Structures are given as C-alpha cells and as structure tokens.
Simulated assay, not measured.
Amino acid sequence: MSYFKSTLTKSLILLILFNLFSCISLKDVQLIQPDDTLKLDKKGYIEFDKPEYHIQVNDQILINVATASGESMGMLSSFITAANNTTSGRGVYVRQDGNIELPRIGKIKLEGLTLEEARKAVQTEFYKIYNEEGTYIDVNLAGIEYTIVGEASQGVFRSQKKKVTLLDAFAQSGSNNIYADLKNIRIIRSESDGTKQVYVDLTKESIMNSEYYWVQNNDIIVVNPRKQKIWGIGLNPLSVVTTIMGAIATILGVYLFFDRL
C-alpha cells in the first residue's frame, strides 16, 4: 500500500506541474508587446516596409475620371467612377489574360503593374480617344480582399481602405479566440512570380517593421490553434484548478477504494 501512496503522490505532483505550465499566459494573448528589435528612424518613428502591390488576375479595378468640361463618357461611364461619387461605377475585372477591356478603348494589359503604372497605361489608351486637356484619371483597387481561416472568425473579408494592417484585418473579422496562436500566424500571399508563405508573431511590436504587417489583396491568413486546445486543459487559471481538483477527486476515490480492501 505504501507503494500505491508513493505513486499517488508523484502522480498528483506531476499533474499539478503539467497543468500549471500548460496555462496560457498574458504574454501569449497580448498583441504588440514591447520588443527590443523594433526599428525606429532618426525621428523616432516606426520604420515601415509596406510593399508595393502589383495587379493580379481577377482583381477588380476602379477607374476614376474627372473632366473640367464635364464631357460625357458614353458607354464608358458604366465602367468608371465619377470624381465626386466614388461609389458609382462597377469597375472592371482583370481577365485571365491579364487585360481589362473597356468599350471603345479595348484591351489594356494591367497584370503585374503597380497602381501607378496601371494609371499611366490607362491614360495612354484613354487619351487616344478622349481629350487629354483638363482630364484627370486615377486607378485603384476596388478594395482589399483577404481570407481568414482557423482559430478566428473565418470568412472572406473586404476593406475599402487602401492600407490594411493585420490588426485591421482581425478587428474587421471580429476575431477574439484565446485558442488562437498569435505567435505563429501564417500568411499565404500570391504574387506574380508565384505563392509564398511566412509565419509572423503578432505578440511582438517589431511585426510593425515587417512587410507582412500590411495585408495585400488576396492574402490568406491562417490562424493556428494552441497546443492547449488539443490537450483540452490549461486555458486559464480557473480551468487549471478545476482540472486538478477533478483529477485529485478521481485519484482519491480510487485510493480509498483499494485502501478498504
């Protein structure tokens, strides 16, 4: 029986230690914590590395046209946005061949171009038909669309903002899951040369120096689960205590049963 008591004591100690070390700490769930590796410029501002986006197939492009003379765009008006009303105009999609196609103007190759390069390409073709004097043309994405899957509010989300950060993305999705592993957020990004993926740590403020802090159109954000979810314990101190007390009650019940034999 002494051997059984010794085994029981050791089992309880191991169980308590296991649960305590499995508990999710504040450092695991707090975003943008102070980090010695955060880079600042000479003025003390955070250094940003926002990559320039290159247009991809299936992107929806908005073309904004403003004319001093108020010239009618005719058939083209269904594909452009008036300068004083950014919600009108349905834009145009980049087709599989990398081109957009506009009435009267025809095809314009935009795939792989930056937004500024796309604006110049549209201008060049536009001014072959319409008067260049007193006309302003701008080209933008119809929004930034990204996907979130995993331990978060899953779905496809769209933002009308031109600049979207990972914090913006999670705020818009309403993600607030304590099982989310913020230290290993996976970003899958499509580029003209192919698809690449990286893992980022949202608990460190140095993430703001990374190019992956900025969400790009068509990004897939994968939120991995913590190991505690698989174990089913250690979510918070209360759950740790509950698990320990339940285990102790079970082991004591077994001990008392054999002690009475």
Rank of each mutant, 00 (worst) to 15 (best):
V65R: 15
V156T: 03
S175E: 04
S173I: 00
L8S: 02
A142W: 03
K163E: 10
A83H: 10
L31W: 14
D97M: 01
I144N: 05
G194P: 12
V139Y: 08
V57N: 13
K163V: 15
E191Y: 05
P225I: 09
F4L: 12
S159C: 10
D201E: 05
I80E: 00
L261C: 01
Y136G: 02
M208T: 00
K42F: 08
T86M: 13
K50N: 07
V198Q: 08
D219E: 03
Q56E: 06
G246V: 09
A247I: 15
I108L: 05
T114M: 10
K43S: 11
H54T: 10
K10C: 11
I46F: 00
L15R: 15
L26I: 14
K162F: 02
I220S: 11
I148Q: 12
Q197L: 09
F79A: 15
V94R: 00
I13A: 11
K227M: 14
Q30A: 09
N224Y: 15
I13Q: 01
M208C: 07
R90E: 07
E111P: 02
V254P: 14
Q154K: 14
R90V: 06
G143S: 12
M245L: 11
G98R: 05
D35F: 02
K128W: 02
S2V: 13
I137C: 04
V222I: 15
S78V: 09
D59N: 04
T86F: 13
G155T: 04
Y3E: 02
Y127N: 11
M208G: 00
V156Q: 07
K50V: 10
K43L: 00
G150R: 06
W231D: 05
L256V: 15
I63S: 10
L167D: 02
S22Q: 12
Q30E: 06
S88N: 07
I108F: 13
G174F: 08
L15V: 06
A247K: 12
K183T: 15
V94E: 02
E116L: 15
G91Y: 08
Q33N: 05
G98S: 00
G234K: 09
S77K: 07
S72L: 05
L110M: 11
Y136L: 14
T165A: 09
D259P: 03
F21M: 08
H54M: 12
Y93E: 01
G98E: 08
G106P: 09
I188F: 02
M75V: 10
N217P: 03
L15K: 14
I61L: 10
V223K: 06
I137N: 10
S6G: 05
Q154R: 01
F170D: 03
I16V: 12
N177S: 13
F79Q: 00
G234T: 12
